[in-house]
Design a protein around this nucleic acid. Structure first.
Lengths: 158, 158
DNA sequence: CGCTTAATGATAATGGTTTTCATTATCAAG
DNA sequence: CTTGATAATGAAAACCATTATCATTAAGCG
C-alpha cells in the first residue's frame, strides 16, 4: 500500500513519479476535481472548481497539468465543437471507454457504453483492415454522433 | 441552364437563392477552390488559393462563406487536432461520405471509403439503437482513427 | 538540511476565428 | 435599364482559448 500521506489516492503519486514527474498540490487538486465529476469539464471549468478550494492555483497550471495527464494517457481530450477542449479521466467509475452523443442544439453530451458490444466487433474488424490496407498503426479512435437530444427534439417545433 | 426547381445538379446559384442567400463572386471562387481539391483545406489555405486569382477577397469573407456553406450542409467542418478547422465539400467526386485516418505525428489525413460497407451496416444498427435508447435524433456522425502513418511508423525507431 | 531542478503563477504573447462598421454589390421591382 | 432595399464584403479591431516567458517556489533525493 504505497501512500504515507493521508490522502490515500491509489497511487497517483507513484504514477507521476514513474513518469518522471512530481506530484504536487495543484496536480492533486486537479485530479480530485476530475474524479469528483462525470461531466466533461473544460480547462476553465476545472480552474474555477479548483479555485474555490485553492485560490492560488492558476489557469496556466491547469493547462499544463492537463497536458501532462493527457500525455500520460490518464485523461482524454475531446472537442465537441464549442470552441474549447474538454477533458475526462480515462479510468473513471466503470466508464473505461465510451462514445458520445452530442446535441447540436444545446451542446449536451451523453456518454454511452451500452451498445458498444457490436461496435467493438466492427471497430476491431475495421481497424485491422485499415491497418493492413494503409499500413497505418491505429492507436486510438474517436466516435461521436451528432443530433438532437430529447429536450431539443421537442422544442424544435415551437 | 439554371433551373428554378432547385434540384438541378450544379446549380450553385439556385441553391444559394433557395436558402435566401446571394450568389457572389467570392462565394463562387471559394466553392471552385473546394471543388478543385481533394485535400482538407483550412480557411487560410482557401484564402491563399483564392487570393491568387482574386486578390481582393478577404479572409473574413472566406470564414463567412464557409459558415454559410456549412449551415447549408454543403461542406463539412473537421477538427484534426492541429488547431485550425478544415473543410471539404460533402458532395465531391464520389467521396460522398468517408472517414479519416489521422497521423498523430505528421498530421497527414487519409480518407477511406473502402471498408465502409461493413461499417455502414453496424453504424445504422448502432444509430437506430442509440436513437431509441436515448430518444436522440442522430443526424450525423464523426469517426476518426488516430495513429501513425506508414512513413512515421518507419521513422519512429530513428 | 540543502541542493538540484521541475513546477508554479502572473503576465504577455500567440493565433485562429468573430465582430464591427462603413462601403459595395446583388437582384427583385418598377 | 434604373432604382432601392438590404445582403455581402473587406479592413481593422476585438475576442478568447491556449502557449510562451521568466522570476520564484517547492518536490524529492542524498
Amino acid at each position: 500500500m504505497p501512500r504515507g500521506d493521508g490522502t490515500g489516492p491509489p497511487g497517483w503519486r507513484g504514477r507521476f513519479r514513474g513518469c518522471g514527474h512530481r506530484f504536487t498540490i495543484p496536480r492533486q487538486a486537479i485530479i480530485e476535481t476530475l474524479e469528483k465529476t462525470s461531466a466533461h469539464l473544460s480547462a476553465e471549468d476545472i480552474y474555477l472548481k479548483v479555485h474555490t478550494q485553492y485560490p492560488n492555483i492558476g489557469l496556466t497550471t491547469v493547462y499544463r497539468t492537463l497536458e501532462v495527464l493527457a500525455q500520460m494517457r490518464l485523461i482524454s481530450k475531446f472537442d465537441f465543437g464549442d470552441g474549447r477542449a474538454r477533458y475526462e479521466l480515462t479510468k473513471n467509475s466503470k466508464k473505461e471507454h465510451h462514445h458520445h452523443l452530442v446535441c447540436t442544439n444545446c451542446n449536451r453530451i451523453i456518454d454511452y457504453t451500452d451498445f458498444i458490444d457490436e461496435e467493438v466487433e466492427l471497430l476491431n474488424k475495421t481497424e485491422k483492415a485499415l491497418s493492413k490496407k494503409f499500413n497505418f498503426e491505429i492507436s486510438n479512435h474517436l466516435i461521436q454522433f451528432y443530433g438532437l437530444c430529447e429536450k431539443c427534439k421537442k422544442g424544435e417545433s415551437v
